[in-house]
Nucleic acid binder design. Structure first.
Lengths: 194, 194
DNA sequence: AAAATACATGAGTGACCATTCAAGAACAAG
DNA sequence: CTTGTTCTTGAATGGTCACTCATGTATTTT
């Protein structure tokens, strides 16, 4: 009986995600979202009750499902080792240096901009950090078993440090997107493990 | 001849800085600043031409001069070594775990929230990162000379990694202010150097 | 074709935004 | 005391914010 919806909600979330990613939550207005999606306010609010904030949370989840796996790449494969770990960091650096990647990571931005005042957003960020830590622990364990890093490196502890280091890499990259600096950070982070 | 000013500009900047620190640039309204400082809009704009943005830049500089040296503490002394380096990281962790320190570092928050769109703010952040790197390089050099870390640790490179790690520590701390996690990051960051 | 249903539209809501400005007030010099 | 200068005040500006709702529309069932 009902008139069918003329837009695909997932597509709307995708476009909203891009806006939140590039501009941040506060700096993105509902009017921005209307322009970006082509969906008028009324339809937006009826399709996403809760409005801007709901759309933001859905954007975070969509980012986790769509963008994060692509960035992690082989690092999430069960037998990832040092090469995959290094590949992830190198990918971060080249992203930060490219015009399309300057915005960094939506989840890192969210940690800083919203985590203190938005528990739901903070929970998504915590999930992401745990996921990162998990696959880095695995990769570091394999790296140690294969002799790719010093035997004295503790995979669980080292992974926690690497998680922090890659978050910090993005903070530094935002303020100072300089190839020499970013590559030096990665080079030395791995040199210390070898 | 002129009527004397009834407020101290430095005090106004101090109070504005606290607001920007706790709430961020965008989330702090001029009305907030008026309430916090007791200075009415007209006076605020005549004392700080450029308004909110000028006050923000002055806040960043004041943070660098007032808050940062207090956080760095002995790490800025010319003969700082591993103890001072470790002390700085421990201080960061206990700040992030205390109600008064949850807001993290104004300059890290600024790197994420404003650096991409505000070159002047980004420049202040870059200065801060360079300052951190400089004193960490010195401290790490002394630590190596004194045998407090492995001889294979490169002070300049290691400092770059530590800078990134402490920025990342604050990202993690914002999303997940958990003592066990934060202490594990610091413990392992130093374990890797030993 | 008529009724029922959900969707699309976009002007409208009041609140808040950063900023300005006209008016009055306080001081110092003459 | 008068005049000149700067400061203080707070109402007013025009804009934008997130959000709502009455109206019209498209589709399916009867």
């Amino acid at each position: 009986m009902p008139r069918p919806r003329e837009f695909e909600p997932d597509t709307v979330v995708d476009q909203a995600m891009l806006r939140f990613w590039w501009q941040g939550y506060r700096a993105t207005s509902v009017e921005d979202l209307v322009k970006a999606t082509g969906v008028k306010p009324g339809s937006l609010y009826s399709a996403f009750p809760g409005g801007k904030h709901t759309l933001f949370l859905k954007s975070l989840e969509r980012y986790s499902k769509l963008v994060v796996p692509q960035k992690l790449g082989e690092l999430e494969s069960p037998d990832a080792g040092l090469a995959e770990l290094r590949g992830y960091f190198d990918g971060l650096v080249s992203d930060l240096l490219s015009p399309e990647g300057r915005q960094g990571c939506l989840l890192v931005n969210t940690a800083i901009e919203n985590a203190a005042e938005d528990d739901e957003a903070a929970a998504v960020v915590r999930g992401h950090l745990a996921r990162l830590e998990r696959c880095m622990t695995t990769a570091l364990g394999h790296a140690r078993d294969r002799g790719e890093v010093r035997a004295s490196v503790d995979p669980a502890g080292g992974a926690k440090v690497l998680v922090a280091t890659c978050q910090g890499l993005m903070v530094v990259g935002k303020a100072n997107p300089d190839a020499t600096m970013l590559r030096a950070i990665v080079d030395n982070a791995f040199a210390v493990l070898a």
